[in-house]
Design a protein around this nucleic acid. Structure first.
Lengths: 236, 236
DNA sequence: TAGAACCGGAGAGATGATCTCCACTTGTTG
DNA sequence: CAACAAGTGGAGATCATCTCTCCGGTTCTA
């Protein structure tokens, strides 16, 4: 409106400022990775050894930070999909893809949230999703032609499968990392067209203690345990 | 401490009060069922056509209300488990149990939360859990002896399977109710020891629009869309 | 019809998140 | 080596939600 910005010269940041911007990005990546997108910008700032103000000076809001951060992650997923598609055996490609995706989910809860949510990234990330979709469809189609993937499977089911995987990742998280490796093969054994035996499970079972801890930390409904607990002794 | 309550005569409620107590219970059941335990007592009160105060006069806090409510639900699950165990074909029993449990989850998000969380009900509900566990173990053992359940499956895996089911229930909820019916058979096809073909899926696939809505409403990370957006015009 | 029991719902108080503001510090540049 | 623009920290303004309390007013019941 007033100062007509010269198209491509937004003035570079001061050296320390640029350094801090990087620090924020790194910290954000780490914190989001282990806590998911629900992580606070305060947490990220603290982790970066900076004040929140600094974060907000570089990124107008949380969403912008997320956008800046996960373009790369999505590119990684795109590449995974391409590799899966390049496989001659499409079923092997699918197994590869779902396993690697599970690894991604387990390693980066932030990326998982971005991937599974669609509430994010109206922009570039949405485009990524659109590019990945037809590749998935092709992968499914080829795996079925080759007779290994069950014929009634559809590309849209992949999302549900990912969600199931996500559930096992979250369930075993912090209790037995990599515990999900027990469940991905089980799931895949349900997707194959036919089989004589069973795929060996890459991970031993959870024992009762594991199960107990896992259920304790299962997210749904926390809070409300003993919230107020004050002001009583006044009735008589 | 002061008035030593006579063991079994807590004085009956006034007629209208008792009626309202029932109303609360009914409303709570309905609201929790469709929104899960994260539902607010204000919501419940409103749904019951009462004030929050009334709810709190009958139930000291949210947890007490939940406790009062879900004993029955758990009894229902116990009964389901017994029926599954009574089945001669243990695999059929397991299929029955997991399917019915999925139905329960879909029909009552509150019960699902109580079931899957262990953060709840130090008391009676915990006991229920303890009674159900050995029955599950027995069911698994018998299904394996009969050769239909994969040999490397363990009773502790049931929780993970439930969680996967839960993920599909939530995913399809409000988009295509009963959509989970497509995924439970897939999962079970992964648990069976061997199979020649594939179990027919009870539910058609999600189309692209369904998928879109489902992803939109996928819970993880909501908020933060456009939170403040006020106070600006003051710089010049 | 007295008065105990009950009711509604505003609001106290806790929590927890996003984002702003400004006194102060630091880097850069002539 | 100033001078000053750029950058910084972090307390706190705001907002959004919950849970649970309080009390003036209403309703049952005996």
């Amino acid at each position: 409106m007033d100062t007509p910005t010269p198209p491509a010269a937004p003035r570079p940041l001061r050296r320390d400022a640029e350094l801090n911007r990087q620090r924020v990005l790194v910290a954000a990546k780490e914190v989001f990775a282990e806590r998911g997108l629900e992580a606070t910008l305060d947490e990220i700032a603290k982790h970066a050894g900076l004040g929140v103000g600094t974060v907000y000076r570089r990124f107008p809001n949380k969403e912008a930070l997320i956008d800046a951060l996960f373009e790369e992650g999505f590119a990684q997923i795109l590449e995974l999909t391409e590799r899966a598609l390049a496989e001659a055996d499409a079923w092997a490609g699918l197994v590869f893809l779902l396993t690697r995706m599970a690894e991604v989910q387990a390693a980066d809860f932030g990326l998982r949230d971005v991937m599974l949510s669609e509430t994010y990234g109206r922009d570039r990330i949405a485009q990524m999703r659109d590019r990945i979709k037809p590749m998935m469809e092709q992968l499914v189609a080829r795996a079925q032609e080759q007779g290994l993937l069950r014929a009634d499977f559809r590309a849209t089911d992949i999302m549900a499968v990912q969600l199931m995987i996500s559930a096992t990742v979250e369930f075993t998280h912090g209790v037995r990392d990599g515990g999900w490796r027990r469940y991905v093969p089980m799931l895949l054994d349900g997707l194959i067209a036919r089989r004589d035996g069973v795929t060996e499970l890459a991970e031993p079972e959870l024992d009762d203690d594991d199960l107990h801890s896992a259920m304790q930390s299962w997210p749904r409904y926390r809070r409300g345990s003993a919230p107020v607990e004050s002001r009583r002794q006044q009735d008589l």
